[in-house]
Design a protein around this nucleic acid. Structure first.
Lengths: 152, 152
DNA sequence: AACAAATACGTGTATATACATGTATTCAAA
DNA sequence: TTTGAATACATGTATATACACGTATTTGTT
């Protein structure tokens, strides 16, 4: 769907302004698609993200701050997301021996199973809805990295 | 900043998968930049969005559902966002005469003033941080609309 | 060794997101 | 005309976002 239809507006200051809105809208759209699939696994978007990060290092242990700095949305309240995952017995908390300030997190067997099933589903839905080829994706990656060049 | 540094990961399934994450990360980055500026005006990202939509129709009245369908994030709880704006006396609520189910919203003088000042700031920060030219922005717009082609 | 600063995490608050439900009003079919 | 469905909005709940602050631990400086 064209952005104009999606947000019922045709008045954009210029193409750059429109690109900003397009990025925000596309991200919302993508999150919505993913969340709908993850719901079947009882996971939210952010809970899934934390599980993925844990998997990346598994069976190595990883502490809360290392999870936080890998999150897509940097202001995520990781301790609270881990609270939910712990209740569902998908992860385990332990105090680090090396540095008692750190809480190290590990995946449970159940966590591994849920992650594997949901990842399969997420990969499938990505292939299904993102109808672009590798070159187009590559262009997007280059352009978005240029957008963020100025850092903040 | 490269996505790899931003989320400390180098393992992407393919360019399409990476593009998905890049879109999500760039949207977060853009929202963060905007929110930081809006904070000086006591506004959140979504409150600003509602004010902009009201301005687009001003001095015409607009009802809650028409605001909702123009929002970038479609699941926004518009009545609640309007609650906050009403407390700050930036908007006014009234029941529609034509259809008493509808609540029509209008900007106050104070709302108009805050919106104008904040819009100036937002436009300036857009120009400042989004260092791409019109052609590059146009490419992004085309590519993102292709990404969303499949609808859902 | 003692103490100040930094770090890591948990917790609290306000707002937003996502979704379900309740209530009043309008519309449409019998 | 009456009644059931649809619509518009408000409200409630769980989770997330954004940010501030408190506590425990570690580090660095004197």
């Amino acid at each position: 769907m064209k952005l104009e239809q999606a947000i019922q507006s045709t008045r954009f200051k210029n193409e750059v302004h429109k690109a900003g809105l397009n990025i925000l809208y596309t991200a919302w759209w993508l999150k919505t698609v993913m969340s709908r699939e993850l719901k079947e696994f009882g996971l939210t978007h952010e809970q899934y993200n934390v599980l993925r990060i844990l998997k990346g290092k598994h069976p190595e242990l990883i502490c809360v701050k290392d999870i936080a700095c890998r999150m897509i949305e940097k202001n995520s309240n990781v301790p609270r997301i881990i609270d939910r995952l712990e209740i569902k017995k998908l992860v385990k908390r332990a105090t680090s021996e090396a540095d008692k300030r750190e809480t190290v997190i590990s995946l449970t067997q159940s966590g591994i199973a849920v992650l594997e099933a949901s990842t399969q589903r997420i990969n499938a839905i990505f292939d299904e809805v993102m109808v672009i080829n590798e070159e187009e994706a590559s262009s997007i990656n280059q352009l978005l990295e240029k957008v963020r060049e100025k850092e903040s």
